[in-house]
């Protein structure tokens, strides 16, 4: 859905995005985080504590996801992708570790 419109905001820059104008916010969409979710979150905390990445590296690598994944993956799946991307980029792990 790449548009040539130069004013089109980045995918993650969602404020006011008319695409969601008619999507109700669902206050009842309130399931507690799953074990997967909590584990991803905890791994992120450990790595941040150890100074291996900053919140902005994490945010940037989520923003870099393709639109399909940005809107298709669950929240903590996106975190996992981002954490993994930063760890590979920094040489903490290699792509062979995760292939």
């Amino acid at each position: 859905m790449d548009s040539p419109d130069p004013d089109r905001p980045a995918t993650h820059d969602l404020g006011g995005n008319p695409r969601f104008r008619c999507t109700p916010v669902e206050p009842d969409d309130d399931a507690p985080p799953s074990d997967f979710d909590k584990r991803v979150d905890a791994v992120r905390s450990v790595l941040r504590e150890k100074g291996l990445f900053t919140v902005d590296e994490m945010r940037f690598n989520i923003e870099a996801l393709h639109e399909t994944e940005y809107f298709g993956l669950t929240y903590y799946e996106k975190w996992l992708r981002s954490v993994t991307a930063v760890m590979v980029r920094k040489g903490v792990i290699t792509w062979e570790d995760i292939k």
Partner: peptide
């Protein structure tokens, strides 16, 4: 994604970056 998380954690452990107790501690705190 579940598989990727397992591989990531295994690699981080193998390379001495973290241990299971680190993850448990952060999860408890959260």
């Amino acid at each position: 994604s579940v598989e990727l998380l397992d591989k990531l954690v295994a690699a981080l452990k193998r390379r001495g970056v973290l241990v299971e107790e680190d993850i448990a501690r952060c999860q408890t705190q959260a």
